[in-house]
């Protein structure tokens, strides 16, 4: 676009009443708009970088194997030797169970809604509407439901399984919506081809539609789980209690998770606790970014051209 490569205006064989092509005009509005857009992007990005930098600097002294080799402590005198191991294992237990509960249910619901449900029926439309509404319910509400229904009435108590069920309910709408998108992205022509060969609906879904939708579904699933990973609010109600000094060993163990642990550490006045909290934040961010990168990788790797 540089003007040096265009011939001088005197050589241009333009009709006299038209401006020469080589007279580039400046357009201030154009430039301003672009700058404004870049500024907005910068604000969003700067906050993210500042957050990470702050956490890394503050927690630098504690970013070492103690973090995952040692158990948490409540005593200020022992905090220099403390870590967050039980929170890491607790998080793995809870998220692993959440995946095991919400993925099968979510994907099955999505298959029903996309492949089987007759959208002209009012009850199917009502279901759809409610799923979308559920996705907008604040997570603390799910926590209250879990406390009242699952922990108390059903009597599972403040355990790993209670937390996993509540987090599953929380992210289920996200899983369903993402899986439906993935199913919808599979071209109708593939289904028609399968039906025209005499395949049943189940065969068509299981052998053609699902395999083609798996990349999109796994992307959605990972994003949903990373949301569950960062949740603290409902678990506060569900007894992810302060300083658990042991790893969960069954579905009915007490537990704590990283976000809860971070919350508890930050409450303490001593600087040593704050440092440990910052280190735990870095760890949580690394796990989240790793999960999101995996989602992007899967999406790019398996994206299908039709």
């Amino acid at each position: 676009m540089s003007t040096t490569s265009t011939p001088p205006a005197s050589h241009a064989a333009n009709p006299r009443h038209r401006p020469s092509l080589s007279q580039r005009r400046s357009r201030p509005g154009e430039v301003l708009f672009k700058l404004a857009l870049q500024f907005c992007l910068l604000v969003a990005f700067a906050f993210l970088v500042a957050l990470i930098a702050f956490a890394v600097i503050k927690g630098w002294n504690r970013l070492d194997p103690r973090l995952w080799q040692e158990m948490p402590t409540g005593a200020a005198s022992r905090v220099a030797r403390a870590g967050v191991q039980s929170a890491i294992t607790g998080t793995l237990w809870v998220i692993g169970l959440t995946a095991a509960i919400c993925l099968p249910i979510g994907i099955a619901s999505a298959i029903y809604l996309e492949e089987y449900a007759d959208n002209t029926r009012w009850y199917n439309r009502l279901l759809e509407l409610n799923i979308q509404n559920l996705a907008g319910v604040p997570s603390i509400v799910f926590g209250i439901l879990g406390l009242g229904l699952i922990a108390r009435v059903i009597g599972l108590g403040f355990t790993v399984i209670t937390a996993a069920i509540v987090l599953s309910l929380l992210v289920l709408p996200v899983v369903i919506i993402a899986s439906r998108e993935a199913l919808r992205a599979v071209p109708r022509s593939i289904r028609q081809a399968s039906y025209a060969l005499g395949a049943t609906r189940w065969q068509t879904t299981w052998r053609q539609v699902l395999p083609a939708a798996v990349p999109g579904m796994s992307t959605g699933a990972i994003l949903a789980l990373s949301r569950a990973l960062g949740e603290a609010a409902p678990l506060i109600l569900l007894g992810a209690v302060t300083f658990i000094r042991f790893n969960p060993d069954s579905l009915l163990s007490s537990y704590t998770t990283l976000p809860i642990q971070i919350y508890n550490l930050i409450k303490e006045p001593q600087a040593e606790f704050q440092e440990l909290a910052a280190a735990a934040i870095v760890l949580l961010l690394v796990i989240l970014l790793a999960l999101n990168s995996a989602a992007i990788l899967i999406r790019n790797r398996f994206q299908k051209r039709w």
């Binding site: 071209p187 022509s189 593939i190 028609q192 081809a193 399968s194 060969l197 395949a199 065969q203 053609q208």
Partner: peptide, 22 residues
């Protein structure tokens, strides 16, 4: 169909699909 719509599978599996499912 109007637009060619092979399954996103191998040539072999495209043909074997019908006999398998039926």
């Amino acid at each position: 169909f109007q637009k060619p719509n092979p399954f996103p599978k191998s040539i072999y599996d495209n043909i074997a699909y019908g006999p398998r499912v039926t």
